[in-house]
Amino acid sequence: MKNGGSIELDGQTFDVDYVPVDDPAEISAVTEAYLKKYHDQYQIDMMISDKCADATVELKLE
């Protein structure tokens, strides 16, 4: 996390920093979005576990 990374979008590469999300409401919103999108898939329990939710990050352009 401390070194950031890069993402590719529409053929362009962007350098990003990973910023931890501490807001419980935002983490809850991400969890709900995962439940909505992946509700019938077996991996959903792991994807929304407390350990994964605690690792929620925001991508910020450098």
Results as ranks from 00 to 15, higher is better:
M1K: 09
K2F: 08
N3S: 07
N3D: 03
N3C: 08
G4K: 02
G5S: 04
S6R: 15
I7R: 02
E8T: 12
D10P: 00
D10N: 14
G11I: 15
F14H: 10
D15M: 12
D15W: 12
D15G: 06
V16K: 00
D17C: 03
P20Q: 14
V21W: 00
D22K: 09
D22I: 09
D22A: 11
D22V: 14
D22H: 11
D22G: 07
D22T: 14
D22F: 14
D23F: 07
P24H: 04
A25K: 02
A25Y: 02
A25L: 05
I27V: 11
I27K: 15
I27C: 10
I27M: 14
S28P: 01
S28E: 11
S28L: 13
V30Y: 00
T31W: 04
E32N: 11
E32L: 12
E32M: 09
A33P: 02
A33F: 13
L35F: 11
L35G: 10
K36Q: 13
K36L: 05
K37V: 08
D40A: 08
Q41Y: 14
Y42M: 04
Y42K: 06
I44R: 13
D45K: 10
M46V: 11
M47G: 01
M47P: 00
I48Q: 04
I48C: 07
S49M: 09
S49D: 12
D50S: 05
D50L: 06
K51Q: 09
K51C: 02
C52F: 12
A53G: 04
A53W: 00
A53M: 07
D54W: 09
V57D: 03
V57R: 01
V57T: 07
E58A: 10
K60H: 11
K60Y: 10
E62G: 09
